[in-house]
Amino acid sequence: MLTMRGTYSRVIRHVLIVLVGLAMLYPVLWLLSSSFKPNQAIFTDTGLWSHSFTIDNYKNGWKGFQGVSFSRFFGNSALISILCVLGNIVTCSLAAYAFARLEFKLKKVWFALMLVTIMLPYHVTLVPQYIIFSKLGWINTFAPLILPKWLAHDSFFILLMVQFIRGLPRELDESATIDGCGQGKLYLRIILPLLTPALISTAIFTFIWTWDDFFSQMIYISDIKLFTVQLGIRALYDPSGSSDWGALLAISVLSLLPITLLFLMFQRYFLEGIATTGLK
């Protein structure tokens, strides 16, 4: 009797989880299916399975606007994201190594300040940063988007790596030091290779956040040739309702593709990364 009830409730729970999961995915599925519908069918034919299938939306959308196609926007976004990823990996791991393995003056103070900056809202530094970058003549360049990552500005990742390095056995460092390894070699040869999982998490998060970062891109970039994917989509889209919806949705699908593929390829690192930072 008891086991019967157990299986019964397990089945119900499973069904519920599947149903909620489908409901969660619905907006994404809607986007995908609508992007293959002809424009006039998108809002009349609301079912997920379309009766008329077309890839014209993709062709039209990719053309972009004002003579600049989406290949340009995708190229820009990719360039910015990749340079940001490299910056975060290099500079955050350097800082993390110092915090996790070295003893130095004022270490506690710096570490505390680093933790505080994680919680600091972006807006409180926004205006002066904008002024600095505009005085440097960097408005309408990618520099304001990339440079902060080369200065370990995303302290969140420093914390992630500090946690990770603290979990590595110290014996490795000690034996390497005895063998005559300096701190630089220790970092490059011992810590960095072992840090790979945390570096991958950092790389993926940085890529996704940069790819999706609409706010700073909008503030710093207004030249259409420098537009990113997010800016391109926003420009295609007219809130008053006269947009070419088919093209807009098709490009939206394409804009989500890189981050989705990245996630699916590396999800183990990804989800572990979230979990380790979540734990104290």
């Binding site: 500079t91 800082a95 110092a98 130095f104 710096w110 680093m114 409180v124 530094t125 200065l151």
Partner: peptide, 26 residues
């Protein structure tokens, strides 16, 4: 227990960022 110079070399990018992109602008 003393890695002062090395440690600050490792921290340099972050320190520049902290002063020029966070504390200064704040």
């Amino acid at each position: 227990h003393t890695h002062n110079r090395t440690a600050y070399a490792f921290l340099l990018p972050w320190l520049i960022g902290f002063f020029c992109l966070t504390l200064g602008p704040m």
